[in-house]
Design a protein around this nucleic acid. Structure first.
Lengths: 200, 200
DNA sequence: TCCAGTGTGGCACCGAGTGCCATTGTTAGC
DNA sequence: GCTAACAATGGCACTCGGTGCCACACTGGA
């Protein structure tokens, strides 16, 4: 793809590819809401988007990816934000701030976000993939925290901190999806407060 | 199967089925360690176990299940143990005690457990399924905790407590699998201690 | 105009998982 | 011990996700 360092211009072709990509994605989401995720085949999506089945798999690695690629950015973004936090800040606070800021992603189009998150939640194969993704994030976040150098060699502290923060975030998102009338921005501090209370 | 209330005797057939079941399971694990999980087809397993491919799917719902059915008991066992804990005990303590006791499961055959857990950890499709299973457990555990009636209506506290305890347990298991020379029974309190320190 | 390089999509293939059905064996009633 | 129900078996064909291969079409440059 964008291997050539000379590709200064979006080059028409890249633009076209991007439009094909979003066309596939939109048709897919429409079909999923009409016939359900399992009830929609890749053939259906390809036909609806006016492309070949083989081409579908050039734009997305799997059927899951049509839904889940949107989350790919989030993990990286959190790492970025986390690194930007002062190293002296309590680790859990840094996690909460970074996750809160990254959650702005969902506010670009809240209704769309809720629809996608709900679909993910109620479709086992999608949920499984999402949990897998978040599991990878855990170690990324733990690495950033460990790099602060405040932990003893082999301490489980960074992993635990990263994991439980992600858990709090996950619950906040779930509560928001189940009751979108309460903003995500109110659920996050609520869940982190509950987390801080767990250990008393 | 054991629908008939009169089935006092294991009935030869049930016994045979149990032996077929474990035969499939053992051949599967052997093949997985020889050729890897992805490199082994269901046909291979069926052939090795001397049964038809179709029969394989009568004993196990999926290829994953050959590995993961062993964990099925654990979740239910934890619920049981959790209910047996005194309601006045701090929730996180109850979780730690219940999970610790349920972890005895792994001590029946530690070497075997480590092999299976390692396989699960390094095989995405297995890990995904396992995370999915644990996600279901979270709500089971949360329900038990909520039934204690110590939480305000709609409080995220039970979910958070269940989730982070499971996270601590998961990390303990992971550390044990990566370094089996340190007993799981020492990793669990270590990870829970780290968890309690997160909130300071 | 001809020659790359690249996107496309058809075709054939693999592996997981399922419905259907004939065959086989086991159990139960006589 | 014979036989009639019944359950387990496994073969067959099919669906669907995913992949390798290859011929074709388009674009851009010499």
């Amino acid at each position: 793809m964008s291997k050539s360092a000379l590709a200064t211009i979006p080059s028409l072709l890249e633009a076209k590819q991007e439009s094909v990509r979003s066309a596939i994605s939109e048709h897919a989401l429409r079909l999923f809401s009409e016939r359900g995720y399992e009830g929609t085949t890749v053939d259906d999506i390809a036909r609806a988007a006016g492309i070949g089945r083989r081409t579908f798999f050039r734009y997305f690695d799997s059927k899951d990816a049509v839904v889940l690629w949107r989350y790919d950015l989030i993990g990286r973004r959190v790492v970025e934000l986390l690194r930007a936090r002062p190293a002296r800040e309590p680790a859990l606070t840094s996690m909460e701030r970074a996750l809160t800021e990254a959650a702005e992603f969902y506010n670009v189009d809240p209704a769309q976000s809720v629809r996608i998150l709900k679909l993910t939640e109620e479709t086992p194969s999608l949920l499984g993939q999402q949990l897998l993704q978040q599991d990878r994030w855990k170690s990324w976040f733990a690495d950033v925290l460990r790099a602060r150098g405040k932990y003893a060699e082999g301490s489980p502290q960074p992993e635990i901190t990263a994991a439980v923060a992600l858990e709090a975030m996950g619950l906040a998102v779930r509560r928001w999806v189940d009751a979108p009338e309460h903003a995500l921005s109110t659920q996050i501090p609520r869940c982190f407060a509950a987390l801080r209370k767990v250990a008393r």
